[in-house]
Design a protein around this nucleic acid. Sequence first.
DNA 1: TATTGTTATACTCTATAACTATA
DNA 2: TATAGTTATAGAGTATAACAATA
Lengths: 155, 155
Amino acid sequence: MPEPRVLPTAADGRPRGPEAVELLFALMDRMREDFGAVAADFDLTPQQAVTLHQLTDEGRPMRELAAVLRCDASNITGIGDRLEAAGLVERRTSSTDRRVKALVPTEAGRRVRDDLGARVAELPPIAALSPDEQQTLVGLMRKMVAPPQPRAARP
Amino acid sequence: MPEPRVLPTAADGRPRGPEAVELLFALMDRMREDFGAVAADFDLTPQQAVTLHQLTDEGRPMRELAAVLRCDASNITGIGDRLEAAGLVERRTSSTDRRVKALVPTEAGRRVRDDLGARVAELPPIAALSPDEQQTLVGLMRKMVAPPQPRAARP
DNA sequence: TATTGTTATACTCTATAACTATA
DNA sequence: TATAGTTATAGAGTATAACAATA
C-alpha cells in the first residue's frame, strides 16, 4: 500500500507550508477520484459535472463560465456541445447582446445538477469532519480562495 | 468578475457540507491554476510535475506511482517517457524482480523536484494562512484524506 | 476596433484491452 | 497462473491562433 511522499512533520509546531501543500495535493487527488465516481454515476465527465454544477436556473454566459472554471473560452464550446447532446443544457442567445450565448439547464439538467450536488456534499472527505470542524474548514478555505493578490495600493 | 455559484451560508452555525464542498472545489481550481503556472515555469505539465514530486532519490516502481497518483498504470509509461526525454528521470530495472522498473530522478531531476517543491510551498493559498491556521488546516486535512472507508469489521 | 463564440490544431491525460516478459 | 510494464486505441480536456458575427 504505497503512500504519497510527504515531507517530515515538524515536532515544534512551527509553520508547515510544505506539509500543508502535500496534504492539499493528496486531498485534491482524493476529491478528484471521489467526485469523478459520482459524476460517472450521472454519465458525466468531471468537467461536465463541474460546468453543470455552476449553472443557475437562468443560465450563464459561456464567457463567464470560462472565467469561473479558469479555462480558455474555446473549451466551453466543446463542453457545452456534449452537455447539450446529453439534453442537459440549451444555448440561449442574449436578447440584449446577440454575441453572447448562455448555457441554460433544461429540466433534466436542473435535476441532475441538484442530485449531483446532494451526492457530492456527502462525500467521505467532507463527512469525515464534525460540524464544528466543517465550520473551521470553511473559514480557512475562505481565506485561501480569496483574491490572487490583494494588489495593495502602494503609490 | 464572475464568481462561482455558492450555496447560501448558514446563519445558524450548523454543518455546512454543501458550502464546504463548494469552497473545496474553488480551492482545487485555484491550486490547479497556481500549480500549473509553477510547473510551466519548469517546462512541465501538472501531472509530470506531480509525478516528479513523488520520486525519492532512490526512485519508485512505476506500479507504485500509478497507485499514488490514482491513475491506470499504463499512463505512467507516457509520463515516464516524457520525463525521461526531458532528462529528469531514468528507468532502472529492479535487481530482485526484473519485471519492475523504477523511475529514478537524475541529478537534474532532483534539482527540479526540490526547486519546484519550494516554489509550491509558497503559493498564495497556503501563504494566506498564519502558522497557527496552517497547523489547524493540516489537522483537518489529515482526517479528510484518511482511509476511503474505515471498512468497519461487522461480522 | 474590441468582444463573443466558434473552428482548427496539437498535445497531454485518461481508461480499456491486448500484448511481452518475467515470476 | 498471476503480475509489471508496454502498446494501441479512443475520448476528453487544454491552450493557441485565426475566423465570423456583433457591438
